[in-house]
Design a binder for these strands. Structure first.
Length: 201
DNA sequence: CGAATGATATACT
DNA sequence: GTATATCATTCGA
């Protein structure tokens, strides 16, 4: 299989937890500020619709901030957390159903110099949702952006991620969510499984 | 371990 | 409209 952008058919799937697993090993690419940066996704978290107390859309809450969550699958949802971190999410599912996947970590594969400059340090990490978005140049300005047409897209690399290599556990920073905080909606693959593949020009 | 830092949601007047 | 608590985090001590 060639390296090509994921299409709507991928994002429109009904099962956001399954899709969170399937994003692992795929490549996120951004063309922002005249620079291409990319990384292999190694950690995700699913936020499952209006019944998930950890989700911003819990109970059907619908505000200007969360509006993109109600768009069709394949839309970006970006919001500011703790006043300084832009967190990038992938909206999935049919329109009106606010499923989202937080992309928490990646292994950089392209535009390392640009990432270093954006991160403000020569040696940097992209493990953690805030630093990942910063390295990719993603801000809340891109909330609601379409992930098929860009400038942020997710590529199918053709690399199969063995189900066995995926570990799961409770999500981070959602202690307020009661019993939903215990759901095993966080998924990771070992960084060694993230095989760097250069993005197409 | 704790400060940083500001948009947002919610509860008021 | 104004007030205030909260936050899907990160970095440095």
């Amino acid at each position: 299989m060639k390296v090509r952008p994921l299409e709507h058919a991928f994002y429109l799937g009904e099962d956001v937890v399954l899709l969170a697993r399937r994003l692992l090993g795929r490549m996120i690419v951004s063309d922002i500020g005249g620079h291409r940066t990319a990384g292999i996704i190694t950690e995700t978290e699913a936020y499952a619709g209006i019944t998930d107390r950890a989700s911003h859309a819990y109970g059907g809450r619908r505000t200007r901030r969360t509006e993109p969550m109600y768009a069709q699958g394949g839309t970006a949802y970006v919001y500011l957390c703790y006043g300084m971190h832009h967190l990038f999410n992938v909206v999935t599912g049919p329109p009106g159903i606010p499923h989202a996947i937080l992309v928490r970590a990646m292994v950089p594969v392209a535009g390392l110099d640009t990432m270093a400059r954006r991160r403000g340090r020569e040696h940097f990490t992209t493990r953690g949702p805030g630093t990942l978005a910063q390295a990719l140049g993603i801000t809340t300005a891109y909330s609601g952006a379409d992930l098929i047409t860009g400038p942020i897209v997710i590529m199918d690399t053709g690399e199969e991620v063995p189900a066995r290599s995926i570990t799961s556990g409770p999500r981070i920073g959602v202690e307020y969510a009661g019993s939903d905080a215990l759901l095993p909606y966080r998924f990771r693959i070992p960084p060694s499984r993230a095989i760097p593949i250069p993005p197409a020009p």
